[in-house]
C-alpha cells in the first residue's frame, strides 16, 4: 500500500449565520468530524449532493478555509494550526483548481502573467519564470500565442487549462480539484479529464477530485468518499463502490444516475424529500428521513464510520 501524504482527523467547519436574515444565532454544520487519508499518487473522489460540504472540505484541505476543529497533517505540519506566514511558504506543495474557469482568472492580466504569478510570489527569477510558464502552457495543450493573450479571448475549456497550468507551476504534490469540469461543455469534459490523468502520470500528482457527476468521478478516481450533510458516509475503492454500494445513500445516488449505462440492472431508488438543512440536522443518522431502510435506532443513534473489509461505511444496516 502506498504512503499516506495527507491525513485529516476530526475535521469540522461551522458557519455562524448572524445579521439581519438569521433570527437567532444559527450555525451551519457544513463539515462534521471527517477523517480521511489521502495516499501518494492516488485520486480520491468526493461525491454528494449539492450543499453536502464537498467544497468546504476541499477548501479546508488547501487551507483556503480555516477549520473550526480538527487536524490536517501534511509533510509533518498540521495545516490547521500553521501560522499565516509559514502557511504561505507551504502552499507551493498543494494547490486548488476551481469550478468556474471564468471566475478563476483575473480578467485584467495576460495568460503568461497569470501562470507566472505563483513563481513570482515564490521568488523565481524572470527568465526562469517565463521558460516554465511557456513549458506549462504547452503541457496543458495551449499554443505559444496564448502567453500574451487575455482570458476573454479563450473558451471555458481553454481557460480551465490555464487554471491547471497555474496550479502546476509550483510543482505541487497534491491538487484539490473542485468540480473542475462541471462548468464545461460535455464535449470538452472528456478532453480535460484526460489531461488530468496524463498530468497525474507524468508528474506523479495526487488528486482530491470533487464532483457531483458520478460518471466523471468513476472515470478518474481510485477511491471514492460519499458525503452526506457534512459527513463521509461511505469510503471505498471506486470499483467496489460502483459494483456494490453498501450505504443506502450511496445506493440511491448510483441508481439515480442515468449516465451509469445499460449494464446497470439495479432497481432505481428514488430519494424522497429534499436534502435536510445543515442548520437542523436530523437526530440519529442524518439520512434517516429519506432512507428506505430506516429503523428506530436510526432516529436515535448516529452510526459511526466503521471499517468493513476494504471499505468504510457509516450505517446501522449496511448492504454487504
Amino acid at each position: 500500500m502506498s504512503d499516506v501524504i495527507l491525513s485529516i482527523r476530526g475535521l469540522a467547519k461551522n458557519y455562524e449565520l448572524s445579521g439581519a436574515l438569521a433570527r437567532r444565532k444559527e450555525v451551519v454544520h457544513a463539515v462534521e468530524n471527517v477523517n480521511l487519508e489521502i495516499r501518494e499518487g492516488e485520486t480520491l473522489g468526493i461525491v454528494g449532493e449539492s450543499g453536502c460540504g464537498k467544497s468546504t472540505l476541499g477548501r479546508m484541505i488547501v487551507r483556503l478555509e480555516q477549520p473550526t476543529a480538527g487536524e490536517i497533517l501534511f509533510e509533518g505540519h498540521d495545516l490547521a494550526k500553521e501560522p499565516k506566514k509559514k502557511l504561505r511558504a507551504l502552499r507551493k506543495r498543494f494547490q486548488m483548481i476551481f469550478q468556474d474557469p471564468y471566475a478563476a482568472l483575473n480578467p485584467r492580466r495576460q495568460i503568461g502573467q497569470i501562470v507566472e504569478e505563483p513563481l513570482r510570489v515564490h521568488g523565481v527569477g524572470k527568465e526562469e519564470r517565463r521558460a516554465i510558464a511557456k513549458d506549462l502552457l504547452k503541457r496543458v495543450g495551449l499554443d505559444e500565442g496564448a502567453y500574451e493573450k487575455y482570458p476573454h479571448e479563450f473558451s471555458g475549456g481553454q481557460r480551465q487549462r490555464v487554471v491547471i497550468a497555474r496550479a502546476l507551476a509550483l510543482n505541487p504534490r497534491l491538487v484539490v480539484a473542485d468540480e473542475p469540469v462541471s462548468a464545461l461543455d460535455v464535449s470538452i469534459q472528456a478532453q480535460v479529464l484526460n489531461l488530468f490523468k496524463d498530468l497525474q502520470k507524468e508528474l506523479n500528482l495526487t488528486y482530491v477530485f470533487i464532483a457531483h457527476d458520478l460518471g466523471v468521478v468513476r472515470h478518474v478516481s481510485d477511491r471514492i468518499a460519499v458525503m452526506y450533510l457534512g459527513k463521509v458516509v461511505e469510503l471505498a475503492e471506486a470499483d467496489v463502490l460502483y459494483e456494490s454500494p453498501a450505504h443506502p445513500y450511496s445506493q440511491a445516488l448510483l441508481s439515480a444516475n442515468p449516465r451509469m449505462g445499460a449494464d446497470d440492472k439495479r432497481e432505481r431508488i428514488i430519494l424522497k424529500g429534499d436534502i435536510p438543512n445543515p442548520i437542523n440536522r436530523p437526530s440519529g443518522c442524518a439520512f434517516n428521513p429519506r432512507c428506505p431502510k430506516a429503523a428506530d435506532i436510526c432516529r436515535t443513534e448516529s452510526p459511526e464510520l466503521m471499517t468493513i473489509g476494504t471499505r468504510q461505511v457509516a450505517c446501522h444496516f449496511p448492504t454487504l
Binding site: 477548501r59 504561505r88 507551504l90 502552499r91 476551481f98 469550478q99 478563476a104 504569478e117 510570489v121
Partner: peptide, 26 residues
Amino acid sequence: EREFVRAAVGIGAKDSTIIFREILPN
C-alpha cells in the same frame, strides 16, 4: 470572494500583492 482572488491566496501571495495585483486592476 471571487475565485481568482482565492487562487492568489492559494498560491501563497501576501495581502499587499493581492491588493495591488488582483484587486486594484479591477
